[in-house]
Design a binder for these strands. Structure first.
Lengths: 208, 208, 208, 208
DNA sequence: GATGAATGAGGCTTCATTCAT
DNA sequence: TATGAATGAAGCCTCATTCAT
């Protein structure tokens, strides 16, 4: 019987539609300023229907955040894996992030604004924090791993990989943030060379 | 008659106490999750009393944010002005920020979380955004100005000063953020040399 | 599908029930002295439910006032229109008003007390004032029109119709007010002949 | 020792000043919409000082109302007593009322709006109602007495004096109300002849 | 006696969640 | 299964009254 299967597909489609709309609205207005009714309206369902997909506003928020974030992390991981040269790997780490930010500007503003910590201090809060932290830690590990490899192969100087990783993320995030708020017509990707140049060579004038 | 003077001093003391407590609680729970009654309780006043110092929860929030931020900006500006060497100026730009972050960890987490955008879409919202933007723009200008001077005196290579300034802020903020969340026992200030090294020299291994 | 129709009917029934109870309580205690929770309780709904019918306490008050007032005005107008003789028209103007007052004693006490001006000086206030004034002006016009016609057909003496209309309303209102406050067992309608007699003939003893 | 005397005079002056300002503001905004602080400000005293003259907002309101009302009643009574002719007495009853309304327009609008019933249903309410009723009853008695005398001396036709009194007050009040709301440049007193004419002769055209 | 800052109960309104249809 | 009206707890703010100075 394929009925169950079709049902499940439909269920997932609806669930995705809700998450899609929720992402937009949460991104635009923040967690507390967003009413469940609004998300329901935007996704074409009744309020009560939302509660058949997600048991609470909080869990909907958490689901939206973690699923989308994991999309970003895995897309970055994939891109990096595809490269073999360590210099290219590092560059791709940045460009993959930038590509995601460009395609998900609204969503990313949640993080550039930190709204993800707006949920109450109840149980759910710590759970979300945990999941986000864990996912983030994985991403950080990846970056640090690349630094370590860079040192091993003689591309990078000897330095605590964690310090280098933090710096790289800092530069990348700064450009992403600036692009998100000031967002001129330019593509964020066009900044990748500058990120790499500053990160690798620094800004001091060469002594000749 | 010095009575008025004493009154005014007392008024300011109480106002400061409220701002102090409000800063802590807002930092911990965000704007929407913080109840006015909670701030009142923490600062030892009745709810109604708060409203003799601030006409609304929103204005209290705005006052807290802008006053504290300006404290940071002006302390940074002062420190920078005291130096004459451009390399030192840049270093002090970072260390002064780090010093402020260390002394105001809770407060700074508001920004590392972006909660400052949680206030409603009413009039106050745009006003706050304006003030914050303006203040921030001044700080950005200062950084860019230092970059420009660095180029002029031959310390920094020729590059868009804005790109360099963004990168510097990115690296500094990344270290500050990490320190805020992971906060080990180490002083944030001890990272200044690493920031400067990475920013100026980059992380590529020297060819010898 | 008649479901929507039934829903609408139910909606209107509930709305009417709320207006009914609101009318009673507002009449008894005035606008400011009446708590929304009280109306909710009296009409058997939760507080939040009221706000699905009326967007604010003020709008509920305005709705209650204007809808009921228009009921009175239109019932008076209808009664008057049904008559042809001008003397009868004038008499019916009074008796229709008295009949309404008898059936809506509580509501009318709002006006005999002027509570309708208790709402705040905000936007809503002027709007209500406008609507009431307009509706009232229409009623005054009707009365004056009758006076004018009375003069034309030779029933009434030549005098400013406005002065006569004001006097007639004054006498009628005085009886209604007295009945509302002192309200003995007698019907207010039984006073119509006295109103007419005094208004038409005056109280001076006939010279014979 | 005349110190006590001077004190008392001062006390009464201040008390009168407060009542004066309270009258204006209550008249303009109603009981519930008027803040004690506002009255204090207008009369140049601190809030706490008001409470040395009146134990509560409610009692201040009651004092203001009853004292001013008694002023009106007694001025009317005096004027009436000064006349000997019954026709003149009745006319003076109206003109004295009109004169008071003209000099105390703001205050009178309290009654033309019924705000005097806005105070809470607690103890004070019934007390105020009682006092107002009593005072009003005295005034009604006076009017009825005049009617009775008018009948006795053959000026008025035989009719229940109460019905006549009510009608007279109705006509007078209607003109006063209209003058209060529409208040053109004309003096209210100029309407006395019309009141008397309509009341005594009615509006029917004389058969000739 | 005069002051006005402090108090806190009480009011209006919002909105996440439930449940009868 | 989908709906959306009903619920009521919780939040922000006001203001009559008190009391330390």
């Amino acid at each position: 019987m394929e009925k169950r299967e079709r049902k499940e597909r439909e269920f997932n489609l609806r669930r995705a539609e809700i998450l899609e709309q929720a992402g937009k609205i949460f991104a635009a207005k923040g967690f507390r300023n967003t009413a469940v009714a609004e998300i329901a309206g935007a996704s074409g369902f009744a309020v009560g229907t939302l509660y058949q997909f997600f048991p609470s506003k909080e869990r909907l928020y958490i689901a939206m955040l973690t699923e989308k974030l994991n999309l970003m992390y895995s897309s970055i991981r994939e891109s990096v894996t595809r490269e073999t040269d360590i210099a290219r790997k590092i560059e791709v780490l940045v460009s993959a992030q930038f590509r995601f930010v460009e395609s998900n500007a609204e969503f990313c503003s949640i993080f550039s604004r930190g709204d993800y910590l707006s949920i109450s201090n109840s149980e759910g809060s710590t759970e979300l924090r945990q999941r986000l932290m864990t996912d983030y830690a994985v991403h950080v590990s990846l970056t640090e791993e690349l630094m370590r490899e860079g040192i091993r192969v003689g591309l990078l100087k000897k330095m605590d990989p964690r310090l280098m990783a933090t710096a790289l993320r800092g530069v990348a995030n700064a450009y992403a943030s600036q692009w998100l708020t000031m967002g001129e017509g330019v593509s964020l990707l066009s900044y990748v060379p500058f990120v790499m140049d500053i990160f690798l060579e620094g800004v001091r004038k060469d002594a000749h």
